[in-house]
Amino acid sequence: MMTGQLIQSLREQGYEEYSRFSFNELVIPLREGLKSGNIYATSFFVVILTGCGGMGALAAFFLLSDTLTGSQMAGWTLACIPATLLLVPLHELIHGWMFRWYGAKDVRYGVIWKKLMFYAVAHGFAVNYRQFRYIALAPFVVISLLLIAAFLLVTAPWKALILGVMVFHAMCCAGDFGLCAYFYQVRHRQPLSFDDADGDVTYFYTLPDLKTENP
């Protein structure tokens, strides 16, 4: 469906535009979401703090047990950054697969190099709050589970690398958690989101004055 037709259809159903952002501006709603203190924002910060604590504890264990030297630990930690970047294609493909799972036909991928922001969008395809949260958080869940499984199977140096990748990847999921948190604020108004990939714009539509909350 073309974006104009979708907007017209939503208006006929009583929806109204809540907000719109160019892809370059999506940092605005994700920051608002992360500042909201709701379940998604809190979960994100808990994950990051837990991961950093785990990295510190593992580093202390390796150093005190002479498993790794300080320079080796630093080297493996720095290697986490390029290793995490290698996961970007898989991360975005999981977003895309989830869009297709819900019925999207026109899924596109892109990157905004100035902000090093990678994205997957479904052109002219509206998703509701429940669908949005699964699409947004699926890469975090799937990749984290794969890394946890790998962590349990490898030796000490690789454990340091994998735990670091888990933390850095979680940090890279700030946008996913932030947009879920943004969406969560208006969940009682049956919000929908869709993308105009031709115009590089993301729209959020809601019903007015709807009081029934989605769990």
Score class of each variant (00 low, 15 high):
Met1Thr: 12
Met2Asp: 14
Met2Ile: 01
Leu6Ala: 08
Ser9Phe: 11
Ser9Gly: 09
Glu12Gly: 02
Gln13Met: 07
Gln13Asn: 04
Gly14Trp: 03
Gly14Ile: 02
Gly14Asn: 09
Gly14Phe: 07
Asn24Arg: 14
Pro29Met: 09
Leu30Asp: 03
Arg31Pro: 00
Gly33Cys: 13
Ile39Thr: 15
Tyr40Trp: 10
Thr42Asn: 14
Val46Pro: 01
Ile48Asn: 03
Ala60Phe: 14
Phe61Ile: 11
Leu63Ile: 08
Asp66Leu: 05
Thr67Glu: 11
Thr67Met: 06
Ser71Asn: 06
Met73Glu: 13
Met73Phe: 11
Leu78Cys: 06
Pro89Glu: 02
Pro89Phe: 05
Leu90His: 02
Ile94Thr: 08
Gly96Met: 05
Tyr102Trp: 12
Lys105Glu: 13
Asp106Gln: 14
Val107Gly: 06
Gly110Pro: 01
Val111Arg: 11
Ile112Gln: 10
Lys114Ser: 13
Lys115His: 13
Met117Thr: 15
Ala120Leu: 01
Ala120Thr: 13
Gly124Met: 02
Ala126Val: 03
Ala126Asp: 05
Val127Trp: 01
Asn128Gly: 15
Tyr129Trp: 15
Tyr134Asp: 04
Ile135Trp: 02
Phe140Ser: 10
Ser144Phe: 09
Leu147Pro: 06
Leu147His: 03
Ile148Ser: 12
Phe151Ser: 08
Ala156Trp: 14
Trp158His: 10
Gly164Ser: 01
Met166Ile: 09
Val167Ala: 00
Val167Glu: 00
Val167Ile: 05
Met171Lys: 00
Cys172Trp: 11
Cys173Lys: 00
Gly178Glu: 05
Gly178Ile: 00
Tyr184Met: 05
Arg189Lys: 00
Leu192Arg: 09
Phe194Ala: 04
Ala197Gln: 03
Val201Ser: 04
Thr202Gln: 15
Tyr205Thr: 01
Leu207Gln: 12
Leu210Cys: 01
Lys211Val: 04
Thr212Pro: 01
